[in-house]
Structure formats: structure tokens, C-alpha cells
Design a protein around this nucleic acid. Sequence first.
DNA 1: AACCGCGCCAACCGCGGCATC
DNA 2: GGATGCCGCGGTTGGCGCGGT
Length: 215
Amino acid sequence: MGRQPCCDKVGLKKGPWTAEEDKKLINFILTNGQCCWRAVPKLAGLLRCGKSCRLRWTNYLRPDLKRGLLSDVEEQMVIDLHARLGNRWSKIAGHLPGRTDNEIKNHWNTHIKKKLKKMGIDPLTHQPIVSNSDHHQKQQQIDQKQDSTVPFMAKINVKNNETSVESNSTITTTDHTSKEGEISITSTAFNEDNTTIVTSTTTTTTTTTTTTSMD
DNA sequence: AACCGCGCCAACCGCGGCATC
DNA sequence: GGATGCCGCGGTTGGCGCGGT
């Protein structure tokens, strides 16, 4: 009964990948595309399980991956998205082109968690860590915000294919796709309870600041 | 110079979801 | 409807590098 473990076959290699193994996997994927990971190691001449190959490709070898630390904008997006989605790292990664779920998960656990705690914010709930006496006052402030009918206003800064957003909403996220000299930005604003206020898509040039408003 | 502790991150493990038979 | 197989996800681990003593 149950499923067969994928990596316990005798003779399969585990642990860090060598440059030669990387080369074999890259060559195979670039030639044949991503299909049927179970068959990949055999066809590519690797002594690895398919799962290990998939992980190595998606987390490290994919040519569209960005390397290096997350930018401030990306980090803010991760925080906002985590507030909405929780630990759904793959969904969060879907909003950050060139970043992997593993990378974001690691960055969250090693950097952002600490940062939020330092700022007095609970990384699990995204609520301020407050004493009981402060809590009532805080709740009143939240209630006031939710009752208000101030229209959503966002200022989107675009520079060198990087976007940042300043807005009067509680939480905002942005997605952007770019082609030569032009960036298309989708900006979403959320309430404290994570319900969507509004979503807006705007197209702009690569070095500009644009302000968008909706009601 | 040697040792130790800690942080980071690549990789592994186990499970759930989904498709197929 | 249950069994089986594969893929993808999220949690966890272990090795390496670096800074402090």
C-alpha cells in the first residue's frame, strides 16, 4: 500500500550537484524541454531521481532566474502577499518573476521573519505585537479605516524595470511585465481583512512616475 | 591558529492533489 | 470508487562559510 518512495533506489546519487551533472541536465532540458521528470534522469544520463532533477532545474538552473538578494520592493511584495496567502510560497513566487518558492521561503525564514519581529509585527498574523490594553485602541483604528470611503489612490514609481508603490490603501501589491521601453503594471489594493479593494492595470514608459486613482 | 557558534541556503523528505486505469 | 503513479508544494535538514573568541 501507499506510494513508493522516489529516491530510495540503489545507485541513485544524493547531495550537492556537480558542474557536470548540471551541464547534462541543462543540455537535456534545453534540447527536449520540460517533460515527464521521472524519465529525465535516464534520458539525460544522470544517476538522480526525477524529483531531484526537477528541483535542481526550477530552483537553480532555469535561465530566467534572478540571482542575489531580494530587492526592497520584492521584499515588501513578499510581506504583502504572505499576509494574504500565508505560507503558499509557490503562489507568492508566482507574483515575483525570476524568483523561486524555495528562495522566497528561505528569505522569509532567515530575513523577513526577524525584521518583522524587530518592528513589533507578528510574522504569522501580520498584526502588531501589542499588549491587551493597546489592543482595543488598535482595533478601533482598524474599524475606523474600514468604515471610511476614501477612494484608493496609488503612486507607482518605475525606474530601470523596478517598480514601487506608494498608496493610501492598507496593503498593496504590484505585478509588472515589460517589453522594450514599456512596462505594464497591475496594482492591487487590499483591506486589513485581505479583501480586495481594487485592481488596476496601467501601461507606462520605463523611467517615469505615474499616479493612478480609482473608486 | 584553532575552535566554536551561528546564519544562510541548497537539497531532501513526506505528503496532498490530481489524473489515469 | 478504490488503487496506483506522478508532480508539485511546504517543512526540515545538513553542510558550508564567516565572524567572534
